[in-house]
Design a binder for these strands. Structure first.
Lengths: 212, 212
DNA sequence: GCTACTTTCTATACGTGTATAAAAACTCAT
DNA sequence: ATGAGTTTTTATACACGTATAGAAAGTAGC
């Protein structure tokens, strides 16, 4: 029958994931360590590794849970606008989970709970007249841009919190105006210029540049 | 006078950086640890921290060195093509240093040795008729896309080397064709579809979408 | 009941980045 | 010369992710 053999498990994947979400909510992503998580579920660190391949997979599962729970926005009918809206919703969703930054290396798309976004983007691209292969390209390009933008923003925020002179600030301070005429004119305003949110602008550019 | 006070240094920043480059070249980026690097320069791990803020800054210095040494390609005159060519050169340069992946979180641009690329892109954008602010936006959007693309590619390669079923493969294997009609039609071809290099396509799209 | 087998859990250990404290080696004022 | 001040180096320690080995706790066949 379905009676499983072997020592019966004390903890489960679900238990681990929910405990991880609780830890993050209470004490932030920095507090989510394997040992802390083990303590939280009343077990040892290494026991977790029988339910999760490694910490990265755990974070992926968290993103999965999180993304699946987010309400999906109504998207416009017009393909171009639909792609932009889906991309921005995806951006918001991933931005909303701080631990996502550590997973953004993931090559293409994300977990099953988040597949809705690529599906919408690919579908809209096909409706816009692209082949399915081209549509996948569009999605991947948008995803790479999204991942880079979120990663960059997270890094910028982290630097700001830490305080102290950034490497860039030191570089910009002694910038050679002859070698870098353009950059030196904006060097002092760089902080303000790069604080603005240009994600929407970028997505619109990609969509417009990719659809004829 | 210029006689400095305090205990005279045994090691220098330059020495550290060149030793780090040597280690990477000989044994790969995985071998570059602070302890190994210390052994290489005949010192202790913690002594390095008086010349380098942390490992991330060290990697930034490596990128700096590396980028500064790369020959700069001749760029076309026409602004659009110049932006694309500069972006692709930047992409090649960063792709060429494996350790760059760990720094790609860096918010905007890179080290002083690599400033040539943003300078060219911003300059070309201004020549194309954009304001300096818009030109900076263009550069940042291109950079975010570039960082995301390289990060994604590196992750994909890493997964491939490790072998074993990817998380995505497991997800795609049991994909609901009704909920995800588009994705399920390409699920089996996904590996091949995403293996293609679409960076140039993406940059062209961004440039065309951003210049009127 | 006993032995094999399987799965899960525990204990221990390694190498990592780096915080902290103190020692060491120099210059300068006295 | 001596003591104060400054900079660099060393020693020690911590928490992290996780590899490895083996113990524990169950089922199945005899």
């Amino acid at each position: 029958m379905s009676t499983r053999t072997g020592r019966p498990p004390k903890i489960s994947r679900r238990e681990i994931v929910t405990a991880a979400l609780r830890v993050i909510e209470e004490d932030g992503t920095g507090a989510l360590t394997m040992r802390r998580l083990a303590r939280e579920v009343g077990s040892t660190a290494m026991a977790l590794y029988h339910h999760v391949r490694d910490k990265e997979e755990l974070l992926l599962l968290l993103l999965d849970d999180y993304a699946a729970a987010i309400p999906r926005p109504a998207l416009p009918d017009e393909p171009r606008e639909r792609m932009v809206a889906a991309a921005m919703a995806m951006h918001d969703a991933v931005s909303g989970c701080p631990w996502a930054v550590d997973i953004l290396k993931a090559d293409d798309l994300m977990s099953v709970g988040a597949l809705w976004y690529p599906e919408q983007i690919v579908d809209a691209a096909v409706h816009a007249g692209l082949t399915i292969e081209e549509a996948v390209d569009v999605y991947r390009i948008i995803w790479h841009y999204t991942a880079g933008e979120i990663g960059g923003r997270a890094a910028a925020r982290r630097r700001r919190e830490e305080g102290g002179p950034t490497y860039r600030e030191r570089v910009f301070a002694e910038l050679d105006a002859e070698e870098f005429p353009r950059l030196s004119t904006v060097a002092r305003r760089w902080e303000d210029l790069t604080a603005r949110d240009t994600y929407a602008k970028g997505v619109r550019a990609i969509v417009n540049g990719l659809l004829p």
